[in-house]
């Protein structure tokens, strides 16, 4: 735990969000978001449902379009240019709540698909990389099975490995443990902690406050499309400033 905390955060900017706004029709989902993520940071985004936290990280790899403000990922401005979008997506990995593995492909094929077709890695090399990461998430023996044959926790670990195969500089996690049975949550969190220890830049939307305390170097609390409070985890949990944060924490930590 201490190891994670001390891992050095560089002063190189990974993601820079300036005054970003997004609307669904007339509904203002994200309001004046300003956020700078440094290389090596582990940020946990918390907040009630509908607060826009998922939308925020989905904007970072252009799954959602923002209407105002700017997002810069690793020096590339997220514009309407398809080439920029492609570049950003190949550098940003994403893990979904419902895994979204491709059910018609084996685990190995799931992992090699994007390296082969997007990165143009030779198949053999792509498979070696895939096996490396599957070993890392501790399921190399499942490589030839289909997603439907795996448990939820295993599927989510495969989804993490699939993203890692693209060698992303930044990983986005969109409630990665919300769809899991309780006994499977820890195996996924362990994988994420390991990733954090290696210095991966991570943005996690999650309700796992234990994980936030242990791993995050910054916790962001969002409500009604705005960043309400951000702080180091110790401070955030022990000494919340805003009333909304206090209420939220009392609700999720209350029992």
């Amino acid at each position: 735990m201490a190891a994670v905390k001390q891992s050095n955060v560089s002063d190189e900017v990974a993601v820079e969000i300036n005054n970003m706004n997004k609307w669904y029709g007339s509904f203002h989902v994200l309001r004046d978001i300003d956020l700078t993520v440094y290389q090596g940071e582990r940020i946990v985004i918390a907040g009630p449902s509908g607060s826009g936290k998922s939308t925020l990280i989905r904007c970072i790899n252009a799954l959602e379009e923002h209407q105002k403000g700017s997002i810069t990922v690793d020096g590339t401005i997220l514009s309407n240019d398809l080439k920029n979008i492609d570049k950003i997506r190949s550098e940003v990995g994403m893990v979904f709540q419902h895994f979204n593995l491709f059910p018609h492909l084996t685990i190995l094929e799931n992992c090699t698909l994007a390296p082969i077709w997007v990165r143009k890695t030779p198949k053999k090399e792509a498979e070696e990389i895939a096996m490396h990461f599957l070993e890392k998430v501790k399921i190399p023996e499942q490589a030839d099975k289909f997603p439907g044959q795996l448990s939820g926790g295993q599927q989510q670990r495969v989804a993490i490995a699939r993203s890692l195969c693209m060698r992303p500089r930044i990983m986005l996690f969109d409630e990665p443990t919300s769809a899991l049975d309780p006994e499977m949550i820890s195996e996924v969190l362990d994988t994420m902690i390991e990733l954090a220890e290696e210095g991966m830049t991570m943005l996690c939307v999650t309700h796992e406050m234990g994980f936030a305390r242990k791993v995050a170097n910054r916790v962001i609390f969002m409500d009604q499309g705005q960043i309400v409070e951000q702080n180091e985890p110790e401070e955030f949990f022990n000494n919340p400033q805003s009333e909304r944060t206090k209420l939220f924490l009392s609700q999720i930590l209350g029992h």
Binding site: V13, T72, I77
Partner: peptide, 11 residues
Amino acid sequence: MTTMTDPPKAS
């Protein structure tokens, strides 16, 4: 390190 507040108005 690049930080820009506004996307450049490309022609």
